[in-house]
Structures are given as C-alpha cells and as structure tokens.
C-alpha cells in the first residue's frame, strides 16, 4: 500500500496575515509550518500502511523558496520521502493550477494506490483541490471522510453529509480527503526528528513536471484582484468580570432580546 499525502506548508496561523501590497496575494515569505489540517492525513496514511503490512508514505507539496520545514515535521512523523515543487513561476497559482501540479507530482512518484488530503487548507481554504486532483488524475474521489478503511482493493469511508453521513466506496487508486479530528496525529519522536533530516526530498520545478510558465502562477489563474477594502467593523459592547452573579446580568440581557 503506497500512499501519497498532499501537505501544505503555510505561514503560522497564530501570526496575523499580511497581503503583498503589489499583488494582493498573501505574504508567504517567512518560515512556513506544516498546516495542522494535514497532520490528520499524514497520521491516517501511516496507520493505513501499517494495517496493510507494507508500503510507504510519500509527501507531495508545493511551496515557495524550496521551503522544507513543514515537510520535515511530517517526515519526522514517519513519512518516507517527499516531492517538493518550488519555483518563482508558481506564485499566484489558483487552486486549479495547484491541483494540476500536485496531480503531476503524484504521477511522478508512481505506483500510488491512494492519495490523502485535508478537506481544505487553513490559509487558502478553497476546498476544491482534493476533487480537482482526482479529476486531473482521472481517479474517483471520496471527500470529507470521518473514517477510512481499505480492503479487497477498495477504499471505504464514512462521508460527512448535511444530514449525517454516507457509507461510500471506490476501487483503488483513489483520492480521499479527511476531516480534522478523525485520528490523533502522533508527535514526532526525537529519533524521528533526527531521521527526518536525512530523508529524501525530490525538489522539482513546474517545468520538470511539464508545465509552461503561462499555465501556472498569475498567468494561468484567470482571475484578477480588483480591490482590497475594509469590511464594516463591529464594535465591542459591555464587558464585565464574573463576580459569581454574572448569570443574572445574562438573564436580563436575554430578556431584553425577548429570548426568555
């Protein structure tokens, strides 16, 4: 069982984001970290490979400046190797271009049975990339998995729906997106962190994957940011310290709203 996990390396979400004043794109120049959302896919992949009794987990990522710090975190968890797509022509790529790049990267790894992704990234959160990768590969996709099981050449998931969940299955190879919280991502061990430093990262450009500069980045994204403006602000209201009786103030507040 060979599994590719798409992982994104993002600016620390705890630090307020900034836009590049020239391009209005999110600034991604500084140190990047592994998107927390992706740690569930990495953990799920490691568990599925163990359950299958063999195979390996390969990471697939696209990032500026040949950034690998987030990849090292996932390698330290136990992934065997990574493909990193990085070059300046990729800046400004939309989700569609990104998905095409990731799909080509999966093909470059070769012999992959299953691709795992998060449902959406923390910073861009378009939420379209999992099914776009699947369509680019010509594979089935099972999205929003709450659980994942593999047997007899098929992958079966519980898929989150508006009403509850569906049991959904597809023959391998396939793409599965997993929701957060469904497994508990392991913490990298010290040994894992040391080993991760030596694990292979295949660094490639968009050109290596067969893309021309006009197919990716700003040129390939078919959209233009026309304005960035402030949203109407919301004012803070009354703030009180609980003195053991603040519930009474809330009751008055709810009465005022005619809720009770």
């Amino acid at each position: 069982m060979n599994i590719a996990v798409c992982v994104k390396q993002i600016p620390d979400p705890a630090v307020p984001g900034e836009l590049n004043p020239e391009t209005s794109a999110l600034k991604r120049e500084g140190k990047l970290i592994l998107d927390d959302s992706d740690s569930y896919g990495v953990e799920m992949a490691l568990q599925l490979v163990t359950a299958a009794g063999g195979g390996e987990v390969t990471l697939v990522s696209m990032a500026p400046n040949n950034e690998t710090s987030g990849l090292r975190t996932a390698l330290a968890m136990g992934a065997a190797k990574a493909v990193l797509v990085s070059d300046d022509t990729l800046a400004g790529s939309d989700a569609l271009s990104t998905a095409k790049i990731l799909a080509k990267s999966v093909e470059r790894v070769g012999d992959i049975d299953l691709v795992l992704t998060a449902t959406e990234s923390t910073d861009g959160y378009t939420g379209t990339i999992p099914a776009q990768i699947a369509e680019a590969l010509g594979w089935p996709s099972l999205t929003f998995a709450k659980s994942v099981a593999i047997a007899d050449g098929k992958v079966k998931i519980q898929r989150q729906t508006e009403a509850g969940f569906d049991d959904v299955e597809a023959p391998l190879p396939a793409v599965v997106s997993v929701t957060a919280g469904v497994v508990e991502p392991r913490y990298p061990s010290f040994k894992g962190i040391m080993e991760a430093k030596k694990k292979p990262v295949d660094e490639v450009t968009a050109g290596d994957l067969g893309f021309n500069p006009d197919q990716v980045g700003w040129a390939g994204s078919h959209q233009e940011i026309v304005e960035v403006r402030a949203a109407p602000a919301r004012e803070a209201g009354e703030k009180i310290e609980d003195d053991g009786e603040s519930h009474a103030r809330i009751v008055t507040f709810l009465e005022g709203l005619k809720i009770i």
Partner: peptide, 10 residues
Amino acid sequence: AGEAKVLERH
C-alpha cells in the same frame, strides 16, 4: 470518477 458509489445513507 463514477466508480465512487454510495452504499448507504445515515
């Protein structure tokens, strides 16, 4: 892509 089947709805 059409090989993804819904087996049961809950």
